[in-house]
Design a protein around this nucleic acid. Structure first.
Lengths: 227, 227
DNA sequence: TTGGCTAATATGTCTAGACATAATTCAAGT
DNA sequence: ACTTGAATTATGTCTAGACATATTAGCCAA
Protein backbone atom coordinates (compact mmCIF):
# COMPACT_ATOMS: atom_id res chain seq x y z
CA UNK A 1 0.00 0.00 0.00
CA UNK A 2 1.12 3.51 -0.63
CA UNK A 3 -0.25 6.96 -1.27
CA UNK A 4 -2.92 8.56 0.86
CA UNK A 5 -4.18 5.20 2.07
CA UNK A 6 -0.77 4.43 3.49
CA UNK A 7 -0.83 7.73 5.35
CA UNK A 8 -4.30 7.01 6.67
CA UNK A 9 -3.25 3.53 7.76
CA UNK A 10 -0.16 4.76 9.57
CA UNK A 11 -1.98 7.59 11.34
CA UNK A 12 -4.71 5.16 12.34
CA UNK A 13 -2.09 2.72 13.60
CA UNK A 14 -0.52 5.38 15.78
CA UNK A 15 -3.90 6.33 17.19
CA UNK A 16 -4.77 2.74 17.95
CA UNK A 17 -1.33 2.13 19.45
CA UNK A 18 -1.95 5.19 21.64
CA UNK A 19 1.14 6.94 20.35
CA UNK A 20 -1.45 9.66 19.97
CA UNK A 21 -3.99 9.02 22.73
CA UNK A 22 -7.57 10.27 22.70
CA UNK A 23 -7.70 14.03 22.94
CA UNK A 24 -4.12 14.53 21.82
CA UNK A 25 -3.19 17.04 19.20
CA UNK A 26 -1.47 15.38 16.29
CA UNK A 27 1.18 17.04 14.11
CA UNK A 28 0.02 19.46 11.44
CA UNK A 29 -0.45 18.47 7.84
CA UNK A 30 2.76 20.14 6.81
CA UNK A 31 4.79 18.21 9.37
CA UNK A 32 3.20 14.89 8.45
CA UNK A 33 3.69 15.60 4.76
CA UNK A 34 7.38 16.09 5.35
CA UNK A 35 7.68 13.01 7.55
CA UNK A 36 5.96 10.73 5.04
CA UNK A 37 7.61 12.40 2.08
CA UNK A 38 4.35 13.28 0.34
CA UNK A 39 2.57 16.48 -0.58
CA UNK A 40 0.35 18.18 1.95
CA UNK A 41 -2.70 17.47 -0.21
CA UNK A 42 -2.04 13.78 0.19
CA UNK A 43 -1.97 14.06 3.97
CA UNK A 44 -5.12 16.13 3.74
CA UNK A 45 -6.86 13.39 1.75
CA UNK A 46 -5.94 10.85 4.42
CA UNK A 47 -6.98 13.01 7.37
CA UNK A 48 -10.22 14.00 5.68
CA UNK A 49 -11.09 10.33 5.37
CA UNK A 50 -10.30 9.71 9.04
CA UNK A 51 -12.37 12.71 10.06
CA UNK A 52 -15.32 11.39 8.08
CA UNK A 53 -14.92 8.12 9.92
CA UNK A 54 -15.08 9.96 13.23
CA UNK A 55 -11.59 8.95 14.35
CA UNK A 56 -10.21 12.47 14.49
CA UNK A 57 -11.68 15.93 14.81
CA UNK A 58 -10.33 18.80 12.79
CA UNK A 59 -10.67 22.51 13.27
CA UNK A 60 -9.03 25.29 11.40
CA UNK A 61 -6.38 27.05 13.34
CA UNK A 62 -6.88 24.68 16.29
CA UNK A 63 -5.38 21.67 14.54
CA UNK A 64 -6.31 18.01 14.45
CA UNK A 65 -6.95 15.96 17.55
CA UNK A 66 -7.82 12.35 18.25
CA UNK A 67 -11.52 12.00 19.09
CA UNK A 68 -12.10 11.69 22.87
CA UNK A 69 -15.05 9.33 22.77
CA UNK A 70 -14.63 7.95 19.29
CA UNK A 71 -18.18 7.94 18.04
CA UNK A 72 -18.76 4.55 16.56
CA UNK A 73 -20.53 4.94 13.29
CA UNK A 74 -22.19 1.98 11.71
CA UNK A 75 -23.48 2.14 8.19
CA UNK A 76 -26.73 0.49 7.30
CA UNK A 77 -27.34 -0.28 3.67
CA UNK A 78 -31.06 -0.40 3.17
CA UNK A 79 -31.70 -2.84 0.35
CA UNK A 80 -34.80 -3.27 -1.71
CA UNK A 81 -36.64 -6.12 0.00
CA UNK A 82 -36.49 -8.34 -3.06
CA UNK A 83 -32.71 -8.14 -3.13
CA UNK A 84 -32.55 -8.77 0.60
CA UNK A 85 -34.51 -11.99 0.14
CA UNK A 86 -32.66 -13.09 -2.98
CA UNK A 87 -29.39 -12.36 -1.18
CA UNK A 88 -30.41 -14.94 1.38
CA UNK A 89 -30.75 -17.49 -1.38
CA UNK A 90 -34.53 -17.67 -1.19
CA UNK A 91 -37.07 -17.14 -3.95
CA UNK A 92 -38.93 -13.85 -3.60
CA UNK A 93 -42.58 -13.10 -4.09
CA UNK A 94 -45.09 -10.60 -2.79
CA UNK A 95 -48.81 -10.17 -2.46
CA UNK A 96 -50.66 -6.87 -2.54
CA UNK A 97 -53.21 -7.27 0.23
CA UNK A 98 -54.83 -3.86 0.12
CA UNK A 99 -54.73 -0.73 -2.01
CA UNK A 100 -57.13 2.10 -1.39
CA UNK A 101 -57.33 5.84 -1.04
CA UNK A 102 -58.22 6.80 2.51
CA UNK A 103 -57.89 9.70 4.92
CA UNK A 104 -54.69 9.10 6.83
CA UNK A 105 -54.61 8.96 10.63
CA UNK A 106 -53.27 12.05 12.32
CA UNK A 107 -49.93 10.54 13.42
CA UNK A 108 -49.23 9.67 9.81
CA UNK A 109 -49.98 13.08 8.33
CA UNK A 110 -48.12 14.70 11.20
CA UNK A 111 -44.95 12.72 10.60
CA UNK A 112 -45.11 13.52 6.90
CA UNK A 113 -45.94 17.17 7.44
CA UNK A 114 -49.23 17.03 5.55
CA UNK A 115 -52.56 18.61 6.52
CA UNK A 116 -54.80 16.59 8.80
CA UNK A 117 -57.25 14.25 7.16
CA UNK A 118 -55.43 14.37 3.82
CA UNK A 119 -56.40 11.35 1.74
CA UNK A 120 -53.38 9.15 1.11
CA UNK A 121 -52.93 5.93 -0.77
CA UNK A 122 -52.85 3.11 1.73
CA UNK A 123 -51.10 -0.06 0.63
CA UNK A 124 -50.52 -3.31 2.40
CA UNK A 125 -47.99 -5.68 0.92
CA UNK A 126 -46.84 -9.03 2.23
CA UNK A 127 -43.33 -9.92 1.13
CA UNK A 128 -42.56 -13.61 0.95
CA UNK A 129 -39.25 -15.42 1.15
CA UNK A 130 -39.37 -19.00 0.01
CA UNK A 131 -43.17 -18.89 0.27
CA UNK A 132 -43.11 -17.85 3.93
CA UNK A 133 -44.02 -14.39 5.25
CA UNK A 134 -40.92 -12.25 5.46
CA UNK A 135 -42.11 -8.69 5.94
CA UNK A 136 -45.50 -7.08 6.21
CA UNK A 137 -45.33 -3.65 4.66
CA UNK A 138 -47.94 -1.07 5.61
CA UNK A 139 -47.53 2.07 3.59
CA UNK A 140 -49.10 5.50 3.32
CA UNK A 141 -48.20 7.10 0.04
CA UNK A 142 -48.65 10.70 -1.02
CA UNK A 143 -50.74 10.44 -4.21
CA UNK A 144 -49.17 13.66 -5.46
CA UNK A 145 -46.02 11.75 -6.41
CA UNK A 146 -47.91 9.25 -8.55
CA UNK A 147 -48.36 9.67 -12.29
CA UNK A 148 -51.63 9.12 -14.10
CA UNK A 149 -52.44 6.42 -14.78
CA UNK A 150 -51.29 4.99 -11.47
CA UNK A 151 -48.79 2.11 -11.80
CA UNK A 152 -50.10 -1.38 -11.13
CA UNK A 153 -48.69 -2.13 -7.70
CA UNK A 154 -49.94 -5.68 -7.86
CA UNK A 155 -47.28 -6.30 -10.51
CA UNK A 156 -44.45 -4.00 -9.46
CA UNK A 157 -43.82 -3.67 -5.74
CA UNK A 158 -44.38 -0.12 -4.51
CA UNK A 159 -40.98 -0.24 -2.91
CA UNK A 160 -39.15 -0.77 -6.17
CA UNK A 161 -41.37 1.50 -8.18
CA UNK A 162 -40.58 4.33 -5.81
CA UNK A 163 -36.87 3.66 -5.80
CA UNK A 164 -36.66 3.76 -9.57
CA UNK A 165 -39.20 6.45 -10.33
CA UNK A 166 -39.12 8.95 -7.48
CA UNK A 167 -35.96 10.72 -6.45
CA UNK A 168 -35.74 10.54 -2.71
CA UNK A 169 -34.03 13.46 -1.09
CA UNK A 170 -34.03 12.66 2.60
CA UNK A 171 -35.63 10.45 5.13
CA UNK A 172 -35.25 8.71 8.40
CA UNK A 173 -35.61 5.20 9.68
CA UNK A 174 -36.39 3.92 13.13
CA UNK A 175 -36.21 0.42 14.55
CA UNK A 176 -38.40 -0.68 17.39
CA UNK A 177 -39.83 -3.85 18.86
CA UNK A 178 -43.57 -4.34 19.00
CA UNK A 179 -45.96 -7.15 19.77
CA UNK A 180 -47.72 -8.47 16.69
CA UNK A 181 -51.18 -6.95 16.30
CA UNK A 182 -54.07 -9.32 15.61
CA UNK A 183 -53.94 -8.30 11.96
CA UNK A 184 -50.19 -8.87 11.74
CA UNK A 185 -50.46 -12.16 13.59
CA UNK A 186 -53.09 -13.39 11.16
CA UNK A 187 -51.31 -12.30 7.99
CA UNK A 188 -47.87 -13.45 9.05
CA UNK A 189 -49.00 -16.64 10.67
CA UNK A 190 -47.64 -16.01 14.14
CA UNK A 191 -49.21 -15.81 17.58
CA UNK A 192 -50.63 -12.40 18.51
CA UNK A 193 -48.21 -10.54 20.76
CA UNK A 194 -45.12 -12.17 19.24
CA UNK A 195 -42.17 -9.77 19.40
CA UNK A 196 -41.61 -8.31 15.93
CA UNK A 197 -38.82 -6.09 14.73
CA UNK A 198 -40.46 -3.09 13.12
CA UNK A 199 -38.80 -0.54 10.88
CA UNK A 200 -40.56 2.76 10.30
CA UNK A 201 -39.38 4.90 7.44
CA UNK A 202 -40.42 8.30 6.24
CA UNK A 203 -39.08 9.67 2.99
CA UNK A 204 -39.23 13.04 1.35
CA UNK A 205 -38.64 13.84 -2.30
CA UNK A 206 -38.00 16.98 -4.28
CA UNK A 207 -41.72 17.71 -4.42
CA UNK A 208 -42.49 17.18 -0.75
CA UNK A 209 -43.28 14.18 1.45
CA UNK A 210 -43.45 10.86 -0.33
CA UNK A 211 -44.26 8.00 1.96
CA UNK A 212 -44.39 6.60 5.44
CA UNK A 213 -43.89 2.88 5.65
CA UNK A 214 -43.96 0.40 8.47
CA UNK A 215 -42.14 -2.88 7.92
CA UNK A 216 -42.99 -5.63 10.39
CA UNK A 217 -40.39 -8.38 10.09
CA UNK A 218 -40.94 -12.04 10.71
CA UNK A 219 -39.79 -13.28 14.12
CA UNK A 220 -36.06 -13.86 14.38
CA UNK A 221 -35.19 -11.22 11.81
CA UNK A 222 -31.92 -9.41 12.45
CA UNK A 223 -30.80 -6.14 11.00
CA UNK A 224 -27.03 -6.13 10.95
CA UNK A 225 -24.42 -3.48 10.44
CA UNK A 226 -20.66 -3.44 10.52
CA UNK A 227 -18.33 -0.78 11.72
CA UNK B 1 -22.24 27.89 -2.54
CA UNK B 2 -19.34 27.36 -4.84
CA UNK B 3 -16.39 25.05 -5.38
CA UNK B 4 -16.68 21.30 -5.31
CA UNK B 5 -19.88 21.39 -3.30
CA UNK B 6 -21.53 23.45 -6.00
CA UNK B 7 -20.50 20.86 -8.56
CA UNK B 8 -21.82 18.07 -6.38
CA UNK B 9 -25.10 19.91 -5.86
CA UNK B 10 -25.61 20.57 -9.56
CA UNK B 11 -24.77 17.01 -10.58
CA UNK B 12 -27.11 15.73 -7.88
CA UNK B 13 -29.83 18.09 -9.10
CA UNK B 14 -29.52 16.79 -12.64
CA UNK B 15 -29.72 13.22 -11.42
CA UNK B 16 -32.79 13.95 -9.32
CA UNK B 17 -34.36 15.90 -12.16
CA UNK B 18 -33.72 12.83 -14.34
CA UNK B 19 -31.69 14.83 -16.83
CA UNK B 20 -29.41 11.89 -16.21
CA UNK B 21 -31.72 8.97 -15.41
CA UNK B 22 -30.66 5.86 -13.49
CA UNK B 23 -28.19 3.81 -15.46
CA UNK B 24 -27.17 6.69 -17.71
CA UNK B 25 -23.56 7.50 -18.40
CA UNK B 26 -22.76 11.03 -17.35
CA UNK B 27 -20.15 13.23 -19.04
CA UNK B 28 -16.51 12.64 -18.16
CA UNK B 29 -14.65 14.66 -15.56
CA UNK B 30 -12.86 16.66 -18.20
CA UNK B 31 -16.10 17.70 -19.89
CA UNK B 32 -17.75 18.65 -16.59
CA UNK B 33 -14.67 20.57 -15.53
CA UNK B 34 -14.86 22.63 -18.68
CA UNK B 35 -18.59 23.17 -18.36
CA UNK B 36 -18.38 24.37 -14.77
CA UNK B 37 -15.18 26.26 -15.34
CA UNK B 38 -13.22 24.45 -12.64
CA UNK B 39 -10.24 22.11 -12.58
CA UNK B 40 -10.75 18.42 -13.14
CA UNK B 41 -9.61 17.71 -9.58
CA UNK B 42 -12.54 19.74 -8.30
CA UNK B 43 -15.00 17.71 -10.35
CA UNK B 44 -13.27 14.60 -9.09
CA UNK B 45 -13.76 15.71 -5.49
CA UNK B 46 -17.46 16.21 -6.11
CA UNK B 47 -17.97 12.91 -7.93
CA UNK B 48 -15.98 11.01 -5.32
CA UNK B 49 -18.34 12.34 -2.66
CA UNK B 50 -21.38 11.30 -4.69
CA UNK B 51 -19.91 7.85 -5.26
CA UNK B 52 -19.35 7.43 -1.52
CA UNK B 53 -22.99 8.35 -1.01
CA UNK B 54 -24.01 5.62 -3.45
CA UNK B 55 -25.61 7.99 -5.93
CA UNK B 56 -23.26 7.18 -8.79
CA UNK B 57 -20.99 4.30 -9.70
CA UNK B 58 -17.57 4.93 -11.14
CA UNK B 59 -15.27 2.65 -13.05
CA UNK B 60 -12.00 3.45 -14.70
CA UNK B 61 -12.18 3.56 -18.43
CA UNK B 62 -15.90 2.73 -18.34
CA UNK B 63 -16.92 6.12 -16.98
CA UNK B 64 -19.43 7.26 -14.40
CA UNK B 65 -23.04 6.20 -14.39
CA UNK B 66 -26.06 6.98 -12.24
CA UNK B 67 -26.78 4.12 -9.84
CA UNK B 68 -29.68 1.93 -10.99
CA UNK B 69 -31.08 1.09 -7.59
CA UNK B 70 -29.56 3.80 -5.48
CA UNK B 71 -28.60 2.02 -2.28
CA UNK B 72 -29.92 4.05 0.59
CA UNK B 73 -27.31 4.33 3.29
CA UNK B 74 -28.26 5.37 6.76
CA UNK B 75 -25.67 6.19 9.35
CA UNK B 76 -26.09 5.12 12.91
CA UNK B 77 -24.08 6.92 15.54
CA UNK B 78 -23.70 4.58 18.47
CA UNK B 79 -23.49 6.71 21.58
CA UNK B 80 -22.24 5.82 25.01
CA UNK B 81 -25.42 4.99 26.91
CA UNK B 82 -24.85 7.72 29.47
CA UNK B 83 -24.77 10.35 26.75
CA UNK B 84 -27.84 8.86 25.12
CA UNK B 85 -29.75 9.23 28.39
CA UNK B 86 -28.41 12.68 29.19
CA UNK B 87 -29.25 13.73 25.64
CA UNK B 88 -32.86 12.92 26.41
CA UNK B 89 -32.73 15.30 29.33
CA UNK B 90 -32.88 12.59 31.99
CA UNK B 91 -30.49 11.94 34.86
CA UNK B 92 -28.33 8.87 34.28
CA UNK B 93 -27.35 6.17 36.70
CA UNK B 94 -26.40 2.53 36.52
CA UNK B 95 -26.22 -0.51 38.76
CA UNK B 96 -23.76 -3.34 38.39
CA UNK B 97 -25.91 -6.40 39.02
CA UNK B 98 -23.35 -9.13 38.47
CA UNK B 99 -19.63 -9.46 37.83
CA UNK B 100 -17.97 -12.84 37.75
CA UNK B 101 -15.55 -14.94 35.80
CA UNK B 102 -17.30 -17.87 34.18
CA UNK B 103 -16.92 -20.26 31.25
CA UNK B 104 -18.78 -18.64 28.37
CA UNK B 105 -21.54 -20.48 26.53
CA UNK B 106 -20.56 -21.88 23.16
CA UNK B 107 -22.51 -19.34 21.04
CA UNK B 108 -20.62 -16.56 22.80
CA UNK B 109 -17.13 -17.97 22.30
CA UNK B 110 -18.04 -18.89 18.75
CA UNK B 111 -19.13 -15.37 17.84
CA UNK B 112 -15.96 -13.97 19.37
CA UNK B 113 -13.71 -16.56 17.79
CA UNK B 114 -12.40 -17.88 21.10
CA UNK B 115 -11.83 -21.50 22.15
CA UNK B 116 -14.82 -23.31 23.64
CA UNK B 117 -15.26 -23.09 27.36
CA UNK B 118 -12.89 -20.14 27.68
CA UNK B 119 -13.58 -18.32 30.94
CA UNK B 120 -14.80 -14.81 30.26
CA UNK B 121 -15.78 -11.99 32.53
CA UNK B 122 -19.55 -11.86 32.68
CA UNK B 123 -21.09 -8.53 33.63
CA UNK B 124 -24.68 -7.49 34.02
CA UNK B 125 -25.40 -3.78 34.20
CA UNK B 126 -28.74 -2.04 34.48
CA UNK B 127 -28.71 1.44 33.01
CA UNK B 128 -31.26 3.84 34.46
CA UNK B 129 -32.77 6.95 32.97
CA UNK B 130 -34.53 9.15 35.46
CA UNK B 131 -34.52 6.27 37.93
CA UNK B 132 -36.33 3.95 35.56
CA UNK B 133 -34.77 0.97 33.76
CA UNK B 134 -33.47 2.05 30.39
CA UNK B 135 -31.23 -0.73 29.15
CA UNK B 136 -30.17 -4.05 30.57
CA UNK B 137 -26.64 -4.78 29.45
CA UNK B 138 -25.38 -8.35 29.47
CA UNK B 139 -21.74 -8.51 28.58
CA UNK B 140 -19.07 -11.13 28.04
CA UNK B 141 -15.65 -9.59 28.21
CA UNK B 142 -12.32 -11.07 27.20
CA UNK B 143 -10.22 -10.80 30.39
CA UNK B 144 -7.09 -10.55 28.24
CA UNK B 145 -7.87 -6.92 27.49
CA UNK B 146 -8.11 -5.98 31.17
CA UNK B 147 -5.19 -4.58 33.12
CA UNK B 148 -4.20 -5.72 36.61
CA UNK B 149 -5.66 -4.65 38.88
CA UNK B 150 -9.02 -4.86 37.17
CA UNK B 151 -10.91 -1.54 37.04
CA UNK B 152 -13.83 -1.14 39.42
CA UNK B 153 -16.80 -1.56 37.12
CA UNK B 154 -19.20 -0.65 39.90
CA UNK B 155 -17.88 2.90 39.68
CA UNK B 156 -17.04 3.27 35.99
CA UNK B 157 -19.41 1.67 33.52
CA UNK B 158 -17.74 -1.07 31.48
CA UNK B 159 -19.02 0.58 28.39
CA UNK B 160 -17.17 3.81 28.97
CA UNK B 161 -14.07 2.19 30.37
CA UNK B 162 -13.74 0.18 27.17
CA UNK B 163 -14.33 3.14 24.91
CA UNK B 164 -11.63 5.19 26.57
CA UNK B 165 -9.09 2.46 27.33
CA UNK B 166 -9.28 -0.11 24.58
CA UNK B 167 -8.82 0.72 20.94
CA UNK B 168 -11.60 -0.93 19.03
CA UNK B 169 -10.75 -1.95 15.53
CA UNK B 170 -13.88 -3.46 14.12
CA UNK B 171 -17.18 -4.86 15.13
CA UNK B 172 -20.73 -5.42 14.17
CA UNK B 173 -24.10 -4.65 15.59
CA UNK B 174 -27.43 -6.36 15.09
CA UNK B 175 -30.92 -5.30 16.06
CA UNK B 176 -33.63 -7.80 16.76
CA UNK B 177 -36.88 -8.06 18.65
CA UNK B 178 -37.21 -10.58 21.45
CA UNK B 179 -39.68 -11.35 24.19
CA UNK B 180 -38.43 -10.39 27.63
CA UNK B 181 -36.96 -13.38 29.45
CA UNK B 182 -38.08 -13.97 33.05
CA UNK B 183 -34.80 -12.47 34.25
CA UNK B 184 -35.18 -9.41 32.01
CA UNK B 185 -38.80 -9.01 33.00
CA UNK B 186 -37.91 -9.03 36.66
CA UNK B 187 -34.97 -6.66 36.43
CA UNK B 188 -36.65 -4.20 34.08
CA UNK B 189 -40.02 -4.33 35.71
CA UNK B 190 -42.03 -5.46 32.72
CA UNK B 191 -44.24 -8.43 32.01
CA UNK B 192 -42.41 -11.55 30.78
CA UNK B 193 -42.73 -11.85 27.02
CA UNK B 194 -42.92 -8.10 26.46
CA UNK B 195 -41.41 -7.20 23.07
CA UNK B 196 -37.96 -5.72 23.65
CA UNK B 197 -35.61 -4.16 21.15
CA UNK B 198 -32.31 -5.92 21.56
CA UNK B 199 -28.96 -4.81 20.19
CA UNK B 200 -26.15 -7.33 20.02
CA UNK B 201 -22.65 -6.05 19.49
CA UNK B 202 -19.36 -7.79 19.06
CA UNK B 203 -16.14 -5.83 19.02
CA UNK B 204 -12.58 -6.69 18.20
CA UNK B 205 -9.47 -4.79 19.16
CA UNK B 206 -5.87 -4.82 18.07
CA UNK B 207 -5.15 -7.74 20.40
CA UNK B 208 -8.08 -9.93 19.42
CA UNK B 209 -11.74 -10.17 20.41
CA UNK B 210 -12.84 -7.80 23.14
CA UNK B 211 -16.45 -8.19 24.04
CA UNK B 212 -19.90 -9.40 23.14
CA UNK B 213 -22.72 -7.38 24.58
CA UNK B 214 -26.47 -7.68 24.51
CA UNK B 215 -28.47 -4.55 25.19
CA UNK B 216 -32.14 -5.11 25.98
CA UNK B 217 -33.96 -1.80 25.72
CA UNK B 218 -36.99 -0.77 27.69
CA UNK B 219 -40.29 -1.13 25.83
CA UNK B 220 -41.00 1.68 23.40
CA UNK B 221 -37.33 2.38 22.70
CA UNK B 222 -36.59 3.52 19.16
CA UNK B 223 -33.27 3.50 17.40
CA UNK B 224 -33.34 6.20 14.76
CA UNK B 225 -31.15 7.02 11.81
CA UNK B 226 -31.28 9.63 9.12
CA UNK B 227 -30.28 9.39 5.50
C1' DT C 1 -11.88 42.95 34.15
C1' DT C 2 -14.16 42.89 30.00
C1' DG C 3 -15.01 43.55 25.23
C1' DG C 4 -13.55 43.81 20.82
C1' DC C 5 -9.97 44.29 17.20
C1' DT C 6 -5.93 42.25 14.87
C1' DA C 7 -2.54 39.15 13.47
C1' DA C 8 -1.11 34.51 13.25
C1' DT C 9 -1.98 29.91 11.89
C1' DA C 10 -3.97 25.26 10.66
C1' DT C 11 -7.14 23.41 7.89
C1' DG C 12 -10.03 23.76 3.51
C1' DT C 13 -10.04 24.15 -1.11
C1' DC C 14 -8.47 25.19 -5.77
C1' DT C 15 -5.44 24.95 -9.98
C1' DA C 16 -2.65 22.91 -13.68
C1' DG C 17 -0.19 19.40 -14.91
C1' DA C 18 1.55 14.71 -14.50
C1' DC C 19 1.69 9.79 -14.07
C1' DA C 20 -0.78 5.36 -12.43
C1' DT C 21 -4.24 2.01 -12.99
C1' DA C 22 -7.95 -0.49 -14.64
C1' DA C 23 -11.09 -1.74 -18.19
C1' DT C 24 -12.38 -1.78 -22.84
C1' DT C 25 -11.61 -2.22 -27.73
C1' DC C 26 -9.59 -4.06 -31.43
C1' DA C 27 -6.13 -6.15 -34.05
C1' DA C 28 -3.02 -9.97 -34.53
C1' DG C 29 -1.75 -14.56 -33.98
C1' DT C 30 -2.83 -19.26 -33.10
C1' DA D 1 -13.47 -19.24 -33.40
C1' DC D 2 -10.62 -18.25 -29.66
C1' DT D 3 -6.99 -16.30 -27.23
C1' DT D 4 -3.45 -12.86 -26.48
C1' DG D 5 -1.71 -8.53 -26.27
C1' DA D 6 -1.36 -3.72 -27.24
C1' DA D 7 -3.47 0.79 -27.68
C1' DT D 8 -6.84 3.64 -25.79
C1' DT D 9 -9.24 6.10 -22.37
C1' DA D 10 -11.68 7.50 -18.02
C1' DT D 11 -10.99 7.52 -13.44
C1' DG D 12 -7.59 7.60 -9.43
C1' DT D 13 -4.03 9.77 -7.34
C1' DC D 14 -0.09 12.82 -6.67
C1' DT D 15 2.60 17.27 -6.62
C1' DA D 16 3.67 22.13 -5.73
C1' DG D 17 1.98 26.18 -5.00
C1' DA D 18 -1.63 29.45 -4.01
C1' DC D 19 -5.47 31.68 -1.81
C1' DA D 20 -9.69 31.26 1.41
C1' DT D 21 -11.58 30.78 5.86
C1' DA D 22 -12.25 29.84 10.52
C1' DT D 23 -10.46 30.16 14.97
C1' DT D 24 -7.44 31.36 18.45
C1' DA D 25 -4.12 34.19 21.09
C1' DG D 26 -2.72 38.41 22.23
C1' DC D 27 -3.17 43.23 22.51
C1' DC D 28 -5.44 47.43 23.44
C1' DA D 29 -8.99 50.32 25.05
C1' DA D 30 -13.15 51.21 27.74
Amino acid sequence: MQGWEAVRAEVLRRIRARDWPPGALIPGEEALAEEFGVARATVNRALTALAEAGVIERKKRAGTRVAELPVRRARLEIPVIRLDVVGRGLPYDFKLLADRLAPAPVPVTARLGLPEGQPLRHLETLHLAGGRPFVLETRWLNPAVLPVPVPDFARVSVNEWLVTHVSLVSGDIAFLAEPASPREAEVMGVAPGTALLVAERTTHGTAGPVTLVRLAHAPGHRVTMTF
